[in-house]
Amino acid sequence: MSERNMRIAGIGCGPMGALHYSMIGKIPGLELIALCDIDKNKLSQLADSLGVERKFTDITQMLDEIIPDAVAVIGPPALHILVAEACLERQIPFLCEKPISLTTEDALRLERLADKYGDCGQVGYTSRYSPAQRLAKNVSRSAEFGKISYVATTHLTCSNLGTTSFWGTATRAEGLIHAHGVHAIDLWRFLGGDPLTVSASVTGDRADSNDGFISVLAYVQTADGPHGIIHIKESASHNGDINSDIMGEYSRVCVEDNKNVRYERYGGRDGDWVRNAMANDVLGNGNDIVLPDQPIGYFMGHGLQSQTYEDYFRFEWIAFAQSIRSGKPFAPSVKEGCKTVYLTNAIIESIKKGGQPISVSYS
C-alpha cells in the first residue's frame, strides 16, 4: 500500500465504537471514511460528531460500495462473526473487538476461512499492547531469567453486566468471563503459551445465579512449560486492573495495573543483563526504555506511568496499520483470537463440571 491515508470503515456505533474511532482520528495516515450501524439514530449522532459523511445500515453494501482499506468491527460477538466472515472472504483487513466469537464452533469456522482466504484480521486484546506487559515478556525471555515455571494473570473489574446474563450467556459468570475475563485469559497465552489442561471454579455471593460479585479461578498447565492461574474477579474498588506475575529459575517479574513493573533477582544477584532485555524495542516503534541504576525493585519504562486505558487502543491501531503496510502478520491474528476462544470455553466447561480438568483443543 502507498503512503496515502488508509481508508477505514467502522461497523458498530456504540460507546466502544466511539472510543476506537476517536483513536483512528489521532493517528497520522489513518482516515475514517464511513460508518455502519442498524440503529440510524446512533449512526447519525456518531457520524455527525466525527465528521463522517458516508453512513450505511447494511454491512455488505458498505464493503462492496466503498471497498475500504481496512475495517473496524466494534459490537457484540454475533456482529464479529458476521463481519469477520465478510472481510475474510473479501480479503479486507479488519480489527475486531474481543472476543471474536463466543462458541468453539464459530471459532473453528473462522479458522477455516482464515486458512482458505488468508488471515487478514487482528483481534482487540489490548493487554498485549500494554508497554508494561510487553516489557515483562521481554525480560522473561532472557536466558538469564531461566526457564519459566509459573505464570499468573488477574483481571479485577467493576461489573457493568447488571443482574442478568450478558450477550445471551447462560449465567452472569459466563458473561463476565467472555466480556472481561478474556483479557486475563489471552494475556496468559501471550506470556505463558497455550495451556493443554484447565480446571476452574466460581466463588462469591451466589456466583452461580444472576446476582452478587463473582470470582473465577482457573488452574492451567502447558505441556512442558509453565503452569499457573487465571483469576477473573468483580470488585467494588477496581475497574479494569490487569496484573501478571512470571516466575523463572533465577528471577521474577510482575506487572501491576498494566503499568507498574517489578523485577526481582533471586538472591540479589547482579542484574546488568536486565538493561539489555528491557532496552529492546518494547512496542516495535522505537520507544526508548529509561532504566534506573538499581534493577531490583520497581522501575518504569519511559511513559509507563502516564499510559492510559485509551493508549492501549491507540497502540493496537498503530500495530494494525503497520501490519497492513508492511505485510507482516497481524498480532493477535484471527487464528490466535480463536485459540483464546477455545481456552475460554474450556474454562467454562470445567466450571460446569464442578472443576473437572478439561483438555484444551486448539484446532
Rank of each mutant, 00 (worst) to 15 (best):
R4P: 07
N5I: 08
M6L: 02
I8N: 03
A9G: 01
I11Y: 02
M16P: 07
Y21K: 11
S22M: 07
M23D: 12
G25T: 01
G29S: 09
L35Q: 00
C36D: 02
N41Q: 02
K42R: 15
S44R: 11
Q45A: 15
A47E: 03
D48V: 03
E53I: 10
I59A: 03
L63C: 08
D64S: 04
V71L: 10
A72I: 05
L79V: 06
H80M: 09
H80K: 08
L82D: 08
V83L: 07
R90Y: 00
E97N: 01
D106Q: 03
D106Y: 11
A107W: 02
A107T: 01
A107N: 05
L110N: 15
R112M: 06
A114G: 02
A114R: 01
D115F: 07
Y117C: 03
Y117A: 01
Q122P: 02
P131I: 05
A136N: 12
K137C: 00
S140R: 11
E144W: 08
G146W: 09
K147E: 10
Y150D: 09
L156M: 15
T157W: 07
C158P: 11
S159W: 13
N160W: 14
S165T: 07
S165L: 13
F166S: 08
W167Y: 07
G168H: 04
T169L: 08
T171V: 03
L176K: 09
G181S: 00
I185K: 05
I185Q: 10
W188I: 12
R189F: 09
A200K: 10
T203D: 09
S215Y: 14
L217M: 03
Q221W: 00
Q221L: 06
T222Q: 00
T222H: 00
D224H: 00
G225S: 08
H227E: 13
I230L: 01
I232W: 13
E234Y: 12
E234I: 11
G240Q: 02
N243A: 04
D245Y: 08
I246C: 04
Y250N: 15
Y250V: 11
Y250P: 11
S251G: 12
S251R: 07
E256K: 14
D257Y: 13
D257T: 12
K259H: 15
R262L: 15
E264A: 11
Y266T: 02
G268E: 05
D270F: 02
G271A: 13
G271Y: 06
A279G: 08
D281R: 05
G286M: 07
Q294C: 12
I296R: 11
G297H: 00
F299P: 13
M300W: 14
G301F: 02
H302G: 06
Q305I: 15
S306V: 03
Q307C: 04
Q307Y: 09
Q307I: 02
E310Y: 09
R314E: 13
I318K: 10
A321Q: 03
S323Y: 06
R325P: 05
S326R: 06
P329Y: 01
A331F: 01
S333G: 01
E336A: 05
K339P: 03
T340I: 05
Y342P: 15
L343T: 01
I347L: 14
I347K: 13
I348A: 13
I351Q: 14
K352P: 10
V360F: 06
